[in-house]
């Protein structure tokens, strides 16, 4: 990447970071409220699930609804409690907030749309339904979310440090490719836990499934994506190094490439 472009980006990020920190400070106290997730499966939940979710996720949550057949990625099979997008450590169940977030924002690059056509109450009501499909929620409960430290300011140095981690220390390129196109040497044969083919994410697209903020990216490689080959790198890095890696991964985004095609 040309240094100029890069610096431009860095500038943008720091601006957003500052802006969002400000937003967090002033908005958070007023908007912060507990999500009111029903503790039991309700009629509303059942009906909402049946009408809006079961065509893909299946009546019993096995990911085998009538629409699922020719779909890739497959709709999530909820029976194992394996959720990709979490704030909790590798293997842990997700928190209700994690599930709520995915339902509300959807999963880019898949048929899972943001369910903002549903009311918040409806979105909350399906959470116990999803959980009832897996015995995992009976024997385990989610671990505490991982700590995300304060973001260090993205600079050329943090990106360079991140590159070293990506290429040497943790060898992300083996799956994601040196340029982040999802075409590393181990990329070809990847399968998810359900036996379906899965591709390491192509960072250049910039449409992160778990969200585009630096915090989202940080969380993805820290917690891993359960049910997929994407491991958690929880023990390997310090908080600072995680931000370096985050900045490097985000510097691989090249949306302009895609537009040309």
């Amino acid at each position: 990447m040309k240094p100029k472009v890069l610096l431009g980006k860095v500038g943008l990020w720091s601006a957003t970071a500052v802006a969002s920190a400000a937003v967090m400070l002033c908005i958070a106290p007023t908007t912060a409220r507990a999500l009111n997730v029903p503790t039991e499966v309700t009629e509303l939940g059942k009906n909402t699930y049946k009408k809006y979710c079961s065509p893909c996720h299946g009546e019993e949550g096995k990911g085998d609804g009538p629409l699922a057949r020719s779909m890739l990625p497959k709709p999530r099979d909820f029976t194992r409690g394996a959720y990709k997008f979490r704030t909790t450590p590798s293997g842990s169940l997700p928190t209700d907030e994690d599930i709520f977030r995915t339902i509300s924002y959807g999963v880019p690059n898949s048929t899972m749309i943001p369910w903002d056509i549903l009311t918040e109450e409806q979105r909350l009501s399906v959470i116990p339904v999803l959980k009832s499909f897996s015995e995992a929620f009976e024997v385990r409960k989610p671990d505490a979310p991982v700590d995300v430290g304060l973001e260090v300011r993205p600079t050329e140095r943090t990106i360079a440090e991140g590159k070293k981690i990506y290429e040497e220390k943790l060898e992300c390129w083996k799956c994601h490719g040196v340029e982040g196109r999802g075409d590393g040497p181990s990329a070809g044969e990847q399968e998810d836990d359900f036996g379906f083919p899965i591709k390491p994410f192509d960072f250049t697209t910039g449409k992160f499934k778990g969200g585009n903020s630096s915090r989202d990216v940080y969380l993805r490689f820290t917690t891993g994506l359960n049910g997929t080959p994407m491991p958690s790198f929880a023990k390997e890095l310090s908080d600072e190094q995680r931000w370096y890696l985050t900045h490097y991964v985000m510097s691989l985004v090249k949306p302009e490439d895609k537009e040309k095609k």
């Binding site: 969002s20 507990a34 979310p145």
Partner: peptide, 28 residues
């Protein structure tokens, strides 16, 4: 704008951990 929404939302997560403490059934 979207970014802002994200940040807000995450703030919700960390602030509010509703613990659905379903009892752990230790099944013999």
């Amino acid at each position: 704008m979207i970014f802002v929404v994200f940040m807000r939302d995450y703030n919700l997560y960390t602030k509010f951990m509703i613990n659905l403490t379903k009892p752990i059934l230790i099944l013999s």
